[in-house]
Design a protein around this nucleic acid. Structure first.
Lengths: 198, 198, 198, 198
DNA sequence: GATGAATGAGCTTTCATTCAT
DNA sequence: CATGAATGAAAGCTCATTCAT
């Protein structure tokens, strides 16, 4: 098996990933043949396998890049934020901004990524972990500062993540007819309500 | 095409449905050939098509029965409940109880049901609608009674549904190692926090 | 295997045959499931097998009855005809009248009957033989009377049959928009031309 | 869907087509699984779909090539022929020579091609049209030269085509035991008789 | 005689992946 | 590095036929 590592900055690697987001986002994982992705990327079918181990690897890679981008942005801006409410605002903002910019990417993340088997879900879980860690840190920050009640961390995290997730899914599945960013404030508020002391 | 209607109470219909929950729940929709479901149900492949129009119809039917059961139970018990907090408690309880009883069913609902195409999602949406309606009614009840803040209905609903959904998904994907029912109280509390006035 | 003989006059036997002509005539042999024929005939699927050995047997039986009717009518009227031209006129007339009356039957005979395998073709050949004999007799009659040239019998027969066949096929495949009977005269004339001495 | 065009000169394209003529010619369209054709052609099942859209496309393509060859040959030689009788002779000759050379091809054309549904018959009709045109032209030529009576064009064409068709069908269905070419002369003669003035 | 539920063989088509060039 | 022709396994679905009732 040829080496795939460190091709990740190649032009074709990026082209294939973009093509995959578009094709899978619009047609779904099981209606997105490699040949279609390759054509969209302007490469031959076989070339895809020079950059990705297999079709699943494409799915995973997209998620890794997407979540990577989100986590990077948050970790870059978060250090300057001391207010847990503002921190949560940042998390929601980055999430909504990233997915709100591209319906293909949103469809991919919220809908088609779900078409995965057990092994892939394990990998997905690991990729998402740093994102969860950030949320956990914010909750802890709020609890320490006395602003939040002392919730079970997992429950609080799931409320935050579940609310964001459901909001974006509903947005994309109803046709992305409004600006997702307009929901940052109310979504953050209802979360804060759930977390805060009375 | 032979008539499929009103075979729904037949023994074989139930057998196929149960087999499908089990096989799809464990292997996933796209790794669950009809032949596997049929074998599990103890019938011939062709028999499946005497009871279901096609493979998608099985998926939809399972959801309809599951959500149907949940909605029925809630609508049966809800009329006697006047406190919105208790009403929400009921909703969470029925949801967690139903899915907490069968990991196959939970896997099916939380994970594999997501493996659907555009057309199926439309049907799924219609089946789930009454469930959303119940949640909306409870929110309105709370707002009217002055207990809840006057949230955007959709935001509030998504927070409630997203939180429950994420909670069950996390439970099932981490191996269903604890009793889902133990989370009813804290999940309800964090939701109420998000909805309530300070 | 149960006895099928002598059921041929039964009401259900006729009902199934009629239904088969209609269903096969409209949908084609391979799009005419037994279940569809049975429903059209108002009987259960299994009942068909009390009257016919299998699906092919239905096809054969229809042809036998149709050709039988045609041959019977011709043989009934032919003895009074001494002019070979008039005899040929009779043959064409009966053929066109029989098929011109029912587009389902015409589609069946001219189009869908062709969907047969080697074994069936053998049977079809035997059923059609008496029809060929009649045509042969007429040609001989004309040759004996000095009206026709002394053609190779088979060639002449094929010209006659081929011309009729092609005429009816063209009529039915172009939508049966005109009266088939209007072609009796010109078709007969061109045949006679081919057969006659200069 | 990958491009199929212009693969028509490929070696495999020809191999599949030949295999299809053989397999369908011997077993019939509905008894000729793609797998059998592929094996006969020495390719994998999937390869067939690189060269043909689907199974019907194979049928149509064979006809197109066959009729194409016949029409091409006739149109090549016809311009030099001014006698309508000789022209008709040419038409019969080319038809009989082409089909007389290969019993598989004859079986295909005369028997199994009939196993088609409505949509395919439409396409078949269009492919055959130029062949009909040639016959029509010859008839007109004969009428203009005063050699033929002024027949209804369609009747005359059907007599010609029906006679040839029936002749070849009878030849192939009786086992191709004699040389089809020996029938050119008598078949032509009986046609000419039908067309000519007394 | 009649029913119709049940069977299971069989077929077309798709597509991830490989590998000779 | 790149190509794209070729592969062949895999799966959903239909339907002629049987047989217990």
């Amino acid at each position: 098996m040829r080496e795939i590592a460190q091709k990740k900055n190649s032009e074709k690697y990026e082209a294939i990933l973009s093509a995959a987001v578009k094709v899978i986002g619009q047609a779904g994982y099981h209606n997105a043949p490699i040949s279609k992705i390759a054509r969209e990327a302007g490469v031959a079918d076989g070339t895809v396998y020079l950059y990705f181990k297999n079709k699943e690897d494409i799915l995973i890679s997209i998620l890794r890049e997407t979540i990577g981008t989100i986590v990077d942005r948050i970790q870059e801006e978060l250090p300057g934020v001391e207010d847990p409410v503002k921190a949560l605002h940042l998390v929601v903002t980055v999430y909504f901004e990233t997915l709100g910019k591209s319906t293909d990417l949103a469809m991919f993340t919220q809908v088609h990524l779900r078409q995965s088997n057990a092994e892939m879900r394990k990998q997905i879980g690991e990729i998402i972990r740093p994102y969860y860690s950030i949320i956990d840190d914010i909750i802890r920050m709020g609890v320490d500062s006395g602003e939040f009640r002392d919730h079970d961390l997992r429950i609080a995290r799931r409320m935050i993540f579940g609310t964001m997730d459901e909001t974006v899914t509903a947005w994309i599945l109803t046709g992305a007819k409004y600006d997702l960013l307009s929901l940052i404030q109310p979504v953050r508020d209802i979360m804060i309500g759930g977390l805060s002391k009375k």
